[in-house]
Computed example of a mutant assay.
Amino acid sequence: MTAAKPAPVTTEPVPTPAGDARITLHPAAAPRAVLALGHGAGGGIEARDLAALAAALPARGVSVALVEQPWRVAGRKVAPAPGTLDAGWVPVAERLAGTGLPLVVGGRSAGARVACRTGAASGAVGVVALAFPLHPPGRPEKSRAGELLGSGLPTLVVQGPKDPFGGPAEFPELPDSHELVALPAGNHGFEVPKRAGTGQSELLEMIVSAVGDWVSRVV
């Protein structure tokens, strides 16, 4: 039997109260779920973890929608306040939830925070938090754990040990609905030093495996 050819990647603007967002959809040939991923405040959808998930998960039956926030689409350099980020995300999530497939929302860093804050209200069935910024660097007293704990949905956290925004050991005890994957290497951008025992490609494979397996259980 000949394997189904992957469907072409498509790009779609989505109007939001904060301006037009943009979806770049990496579709599965026979999708059983959609994973929507937002970027962080300091980068875009080209981040290594987002790109790796978009390249690998469609073969596992999960379409991956990489979402660019309106501020990024407009070419601005600085991310807006959390409320504006949420306003730029919710219509996109609702658009993807309208496909009829189970929707998992998530993202990296600031994108993970947005997904935690809005996931339950947008029709999602789970949240993927990549490099969740538990606190500002050097300010552990400024914890954002409440956003994570209050997601109201099954939530996967994937965290590197060298993350200045909070390593795995800094996270509070999570409820049974939440799962924390502590990676063996990687900083906030899941970058691995050349002398580390774990290679860069190996770490990305771990992230893809952890997210893919978890999404399969949730949907």
Rank of each mutant, 00 (worst) to 15 (best):
V211M: 05
G126L: 02
A21M: 06
V157D: 00
V73G: 01
R60N: 09
P27K: 06
A54W: 12
A30F: 00
G138D: 03
K5A: 15
G40M: 13
L204T: 08
A121W: 00
L101I: 08
G212I: 10
A30R: 04
V14C: 06
G83T: 12
T118S: 07
I45V: 15
G107K: 09
K194I: 04
A110R: 12
G83C: 02
L153E: 05
L149A: 08
P13L: 14
V208I: 14
L35S: 13
G166T: 03
V78Q: 14
A210I: 03
L180M: 12
P58D: 07
L204K: 10
G61N: 05
P58L: 11
N187I: 07
T118K: 01
L35Q: 14
P82L: 08
H178S: 12
G167T: 10
W89S: 14
G111A: 05
E205C: 07
P15G: 01
V208N: 12
P13H: 09
E179K: 00
G100A: 12
V211D: 02
Q159E: 14
V219G: 10
S151L: 04
A36F: 02
I23V: 15
R60Q: 15
G166F: 03
R144A: 09
G111L: 09
V104K: 03
E46I: 01
L35N: 13
R217T: 04
G75W: 08
P168I: 00
T198I: 07
A210S: 13
G40P: 10
Q69V: 02
V208R: 11
P70E: 13
P27W: 04
T84Q: 15
R195F: 04
A55G: 06
V218N: 01
Q159H: 03
T11C: 02
E191I: 09
R60V: 04
V114R: 00
V127Y: 09
A41F: 10
P137W: 09
A115H: 11
A55C: 02
G152D: 08
S63Y: 10
L50R: 07
A51V: 03
H135Y: 15
A121L: 03
G75V: 12
E205K: 15
A56V: 07
P102D: 11
D86H: 13
L103W: 11
E68W: 06
D86R: 14
G160F: 09
P17L: 09
G88L: 01
V215W: 10
P164K: 10
A51E: 06
T11G: 06
G83W: 04
R95H: 15
T16Y: 08
V192I: 03
T10G: 06
R95C: 08
A3Q: 14
E170Q: 15
L130G: 11
E173N: 01
T99K: 01
S209F: 00
G98P: 03
G44I: 12
Q159Y: 02
T84C: 02
V158S: 02
A145S: 13
G88R: 04
R22T: 10
T118Q: 05
E173S: 09
A74D: 13
A81S: 08
P15L: 03
S209R: 04
L180Y: 06
A145K: 05
M206E: 14
D176K: 14
A65P: 13
G98S: 14
